[in-house]
């Protein structure tokens, strides 16, 4: 059942991203997905196997798959959506809105991972989670801006 929930969440975040009316050029999005994926994967490995602040429930295949879906699909596409909306929006309210949405949805899904015993916090806490999410958002924006400028110089519009 837990993997079904995270499959639905993965589908939802991809659907939201695909449905956006204004997006960055495709080339920028491809590059952004890759740099997000590298950071998010490394972050998980360092937090779990080096610092041992989080423990992954590897005894259950559905829970492990849920963690993979959340880390490699959900977080990636939520951050991608955030960059696309933030960097193409002209209104400050839109930017604030997507920032708050991105932060809250990641906190909520992180909590869902704990509630379903997918991840166990052995030294991690909500404050650290919040700081990490904000750091990821800032990183995503910086890389998104870089790639947006890079591809716009080459004439990529969409």
């Amino acid at each position: 059942m837990v993997v079904v929930i995270f499959l639905l969440l993965a589908w939802f975040c991809i659907a939201v991203m695909v449905s956006l009316p204004n997006k960055l050029p495709l080339a920028a999005n491809f590059l952004l997905v890759m740099v997000i994926e590298v950071i998010v994967t490394n972050k998980l490995t360092v937090l779990t196997y080096n610092l041992k602040l989080i423990q992954i429930n590897t005894s259950s295949i559905p829970r492990y798959l849920s963690m993979i879906l959340e880390n490699d699909v959900f977080v990636t596409f939520v951050l991608l959506t955030f960059a696309n909306v933030f960097l193409t929006a002209s209104k400050a309210s839109t930017r604030w809105g997507i920032s708050v949405y991105t932060f809250l949805v990641q906190m909520f899904v992180g909590a869902m991972l704990r509630w379903n015993s997918v991840l166990i916090y052995t030294g991690w806490n909500l404050f650290m989670e919040a700081v990490m999410i904000i750091a990821l958002m800032i990183y995503t924006l910086l890389m998104g801006r870089l790639f947006q400028r890079m591809v716009s110089k080459e004439g990529w519009i969409r």
Binding site: A27, A28, F30, L31, M34, V35, E37, V38, T41, N42, L44, T45, Y49, I56, T58, I68, D72, F147, M150, V151, K153, E154, W156
Partner: peptide
């Protein structure tokens, strides 16, 4: 520059994702 970045990043991305998937518990 964008294509070069893509060509370089794709190797790193696949390497990281696979190594951290099958090389870790």
């Amino acid at each position: 520059p964008a294509q070069t970045t893509f060509n370089l990043l794709i190797g790193i991305t696949f390497g990281v994702v696979f190594d951290h998937s099958i090389g870790t518990p």
